[in-house]
Design a protein around this nucleic acid. Structure first.
Lengths: 196, 196
DNA sequence: CCTTGAACCGACCGATCGTTCGGTTACTCT
DNA sequence: AGAGTAACCGAACGATCGGTCGGTTCAAGG
């Protein structure tokens, strides 16, 4: 049994510091010196916990991707009408995005310069395609308006959801995750759903 | 009269190359070596045309910001009902974003590490506030649904519009700027406008 | 008390960063 | 032909990059 002896860093606690700095300065704009200053330990000490800068990135984006993919495994995302499953996924995306804000923020900003970043981009595309399939199915059911192209609508909806990371600040307590999810669902579906 | 003698670089033509590379690798992730390779001239030759890396960034974001602010000066953005002016600004934002795609893309990705980036962020905030005022006025007129908070709706709409830079590729000829603007207006306003 | 090992550090590595400098080339104008 | 100059180059600058190395500190376990 290894009990934590004192207040010291683990790869996880170090990650939470690193992700904050990454999001503030950008991954490429963050040096190990920046991280060491923010963490309050020396540059070399960071390498005692993680193998390097890129492992921190990998851990961060993995956490974000795991949270998103888990949504697709939820019962409400797998059973029922496509349009209902879609609405559930949209709402849960907003909630996960907010609960894992710094990690998803970093994920949405990777550009593909390293192998890790390209891997993250690929997994993101997979997820996007899975959601696009849902929208396509809802369109086939006739549950969304037919005058906006499915492909285009998917991208715009993703754009709206993902943009939340650009302004949502949990400490400001302006709106809870559920409230934001409600607003997004309102905007998305009152625009998407065929008028009764 | 200075006629261009041969096919040589000017600050403007060099900028168009640089912005492409910036958008592919990220500003911080782009070295002068990368730029020189992409431009086909030596690293030191770049300094014959521009004062350095940051001037390229400044020129790029200025061009994007000028395009956006010009929208607010158009007659249709200054006269008439607030909700009509808002719709015009939204449509024109999409069109400018697409016609100046690489420059706006770069603008939307700056993080604030340098003085130029912070200046760009500040001007962006100014623009956002101007548009938010329009939405607020439309809400006061009773022309948008009252059950979604104005502040939140503004951010989500901006998010949807700005996200276009993440996927729109002019060479693919999937949809013209006007077609995308139509789709955005459909989604935004069928969700925003009070049912008749 | 003494060994062990996690946590940490300063000094340093080769590589690369943005930038500068002293030229050379090649075109225009007279 | 000769002067002037825009466009360009290779070499090198000090600074900083991500990462390594040989330790030191200190609490836990026997």
């Amino acid at each position: 049994m290894t009990t934590p002896r004192r207040d010291t860093y683990t790869p996880e606690t170090l990650l939470s510091v690193a992700v904050q700095v990454f999001n503030q300065r950008g991954y490429d704009g963050t040096s190990m010196e920046h991280l060491s200053k923010a963490a309050g330990i020396s540059k070399s000490s960071i390498y005692h916990h993680v193998s390097g800068k890129e492992e921190l990135l990998k851990r961060a984006v993995s956490r974000a991707l795991d949270g998103l993919f888990a949504i697709l495994e939820e019962p409400a995302a797998r059973e029922g009408q496509a349009v209902e499953r879609l609405e559930h996924v949209v709402r849960r995306m907003v909630e996960v995005l907010i609960s894992e804000l710094p990690y998803v923020t970093l994920l949405l900003r990777v550009r593909g310069n390293t192998a890790t970043e390209r891997w993250a981009l690929e997994r993101r595309r997979d997820f996007d395609h899975r959601v696009a399939e849902l929208l396509k199915a809802a369109a086939a059911d006739g549950d969304v308006r037919p005058d906006v192209e499915v492909r285009l609508a998917t991208r715009l909806v993703f754009g709206m959801i993902n943009s939340i990371v650009e302004w949502y600040r949990p400490e400001a307590r302006g709106a809870s995750g559920r409230e934001v999810a409600d607003a997004v669902a309102q905007l998305v579906f009152s625009g998407l759903r065929r008028a009764a």
